[in-house]
């Protein structure tokens, strides 16, 4: 395996990890505030459809982005209403939203485009195009660093860079600001926040807004950056994988980057090598493609070490008598 191949796999891994990373950070904000967010999958799907659909109709990927993030925010708001205001069961609310997303996207898709739930293929201004970072051609001849910069770091769409910037930004917000301290506290012991004179409800809704935006960006990237248009069920379990990565990352931003990159890498390897020959034994392509999902199951089964989530996670806050 030569350097160029490695670079290409890495490059592909970064692109494949981006929607996972954005969704994972969305889940991080939500769960850190004490709201289980199993509905990441549905939010990604809804955002993917509405971004691609609106981009196809208007010809503008930016309007698509707004529509995608908007759709995700609506889902987030419903989830917030169910689990914060009405103190319902957060898992049921999330699962319901996932079902709703998978139905509504196909239904509206068929009504708008009559393509069996798909959107038309996006092209030109309907998609996000790669950004060439400055000097990438100039330093290309430099050994190692040149190709690394040109192939791996440069040449991604704007949302990849947003996702990467979101990692330190999330860290800073959580650990260096007043808002972050309160957000982390509300996921651990909302009674402590309440008695300190801070609104539990406002904090949790704020977390839902952030989760809605980040998860929306994940869907937008999926349909308008990674792929060229929406196809039925295109989220393909990425919301759940992001949740697994979140647990693997123990609800921490930098760890989330590492965890989602691992999943991205597995997917990239599976895409590149349809079958791997290990001295006579051929590993079938189906196994390679199943790898990220197998890893998800293993992590959720607790093989990634003991993970203790925010202690008030999943529990609606009710003032005690």
């Amino acid at each position: 395996m030569d350097f160029l191949t490695i670079l290409q796999i890495m490059d592909s891994a970064v692109r494949l990890a981006t929607p996972l990373l954005l969704a994972c950070l969305a889940g991080l904000f939500s769960e850190r505030a004490g709201i289980f967010d199993i509905g990441l999958e549905g939010k990604i799907l809804a955002s993917a459809f509405f971004s691609a659909g609106v981009a196809a109709l208007t010809g503008s990927v930016w309007l698509g982005l707004l529509a995608g993030v908007g759709a995700s925010m609506v889902f987030s708001a419903i989830h917030g209403l169910a689990s914060i205001t009405f103190q319902g069961n957060q898992l049921i609310s999330g699962v319901a939203l996932n079902f709703f997303a998978s139905g509504i996207t196909v239904l509206v898709g068929e009504a708008w485009f009559s393509l069996g739930g798909r959107t038309p293929s996006l092209s030109g201004g309907e998609r996000f195009s790669p950004i060439e970072l400055p000097l990438s051609e100039t330093i290309m001849p430099v050994p190692v660093a040149g190709p690394l910069y040109h192939d791996l770091i440069s040449g991604h769409t704007f949302l990849v860079y947003i996702a990467l910037i979101a990692v330190p930004a999330s860290w800073f917000l959580l650990y260096r600001t007043r808002f972050g301290l309160r957000l982390r506290a509300v996921g651990e012991n909302p009674a402590a926040v309440d008695t300190a004179g801070v609104s539990v409800i406002k904090l949790r809704y704020a977390a839902m807004v952030i989760a809605g935006v980040l998860c929306g960006l994940a869907g937008v990237y999926l349909a308008t950056g990674l792929a060229a248009g929406f196809v039925k069920e295109m989220s393909a379990g990425r919301g759940y994988i992001a949740l697994a990565a979140l647990i693997f990352a123990k609800w921490r931003p930098w760890h989330a980057l590492g965890a989602t990159m691992l999943f991205g890498l597995l997917e990239a390897i599976a895409n590149r090598y349809q079958s791997i020959d290990l001295g006579g034994i051929v590993i079938p392509v189906q196994f390679m493609q199943a790898l990220p999902y197998i890893l998800t199951v293993l992590i959720l089964a607790g093989f990634g070490g003991k993970a203790i989530g925010p202690r008030a996670g999943g529990v609606p806050y009710v003032k005690e008598r």
Binding site: R178, L181, R182, R184, A185, E188, N189, A191, A192, V193, D194, T195, A196, G197, V198, R311
Partner: peptide, 17 residues
């Protein structure tokens, strides 16, 4: 009404930053 995995300092300032 304390956040168990916060430091004493963080618990004291919480809400009064």
């Amino acid at each position: 009404k304390l956040v168990e995995n916060f430091s004493v300092l963080e618990n004291v300032v919480l809400g009064a930053e």
